[in-house]
Design a protein around this nucleic acid. Structure first.
Lengths: 135, 135
DNA sequence: ATCCAGATGCGAATCAATTGCATCTGGATA
DNA sequence: TATCCAGATGCAATTGATTCGCATCTGGAT
């Protein structure tokens, strides 16, 4: 029932709305948090094949439906690309918390100037520290 | 001869100065750029075993001699932890350029406040764009 | 010169991610 | 609504990075 949101998002992105894509997108929207492929499989009760998940995530990334997050944990994490934000990771327990903080536009602009790159499209920003539960 | 620098750095870090560690550290200092394990092997003419490189890099990371860089290229990159800096990656050709840009301290401080974390020790910041050679 | 905790090399194992291929299906078309 | 096919999927096998077990070696303390 609640598939409408996912279906609409898929159609808007010019993608075929298959069962698998609807399920995956719904899981991503529901989780609202960086998510490994194994987490996704668990969340969807193994209804999705691993290869399908990887292939679909790749497509979703191209359409800016999901974002890939690298936290040096040996595997990639993915999250629904709602509003732009960043994360802080506890290096002790691995907890990930969202941050509503972003780079000042001035910094983004000076990167283009300093680097000599024609375009600067994205940035990845992750913080690492120790959460309050880990002292 | 030029091993002295590496040897001193290792001793200062409280590590045994083995042939392998001197060689690896020298390669990292010489390269001054994010480096994959395969790159390191090539640079050192396969004198180092892969397992040794991984194990040693892990130790170097703990001693803050090297930094691990995640650029979502399917493998980790490592670079000598000289002065703190960041990178911009061309999403077309993969070129990595160093940036002498960093976050304003105010942002770093507010992360601690917003997140509720006790400590904020590090951050990873990577930019992605298109370099001038790739149009 | 001796000694041994720690370091190394080798091969095997692990684990995330990718690929080939036969089969299936969403949705465009008649 | 029935037909059709490019694109999507599942499965199994593969790749490629990283890790591990274990026998051997070595830096540096004594």
């Amino acid at each position: 029932m609640n598939d409408h949101v996912s279906v609409d998002l898929l159609k808007a992105a010019g993608l075929r709305a298959t069962k698998q894509r609807i399920l995956l997108l719904r899981a991503l929207i529901a989780e609202q948090h960086p998510f490994s492929v194994e987490d996704i499989r668990a969340h969807t009760k193994n209804a999705l094949d691993t290869a399908t998940i990887y292939r679909t995530l790749e497509i979703f990334k191209e359409k800016n439906l999901v974002r890939q997050v690298e936290l040096a944990q040996g595997r990639a994490l993915y999250e629904y690309a709602g509003n732009h934000h960043h994360h802080i990771v506890c290096t002790s327990c691995g907890t990930i918390r969202d941050l509503d903080i972003c780079l000042p536009k001035t910094l983004h602009r000076s990167v283009r100037e300093v680097s000599g790159f024609s375009r600067v499209n994205q940035h990845a920003l992750e913080f690492f520290g120790v959460c309050n539960k880990c002292v």
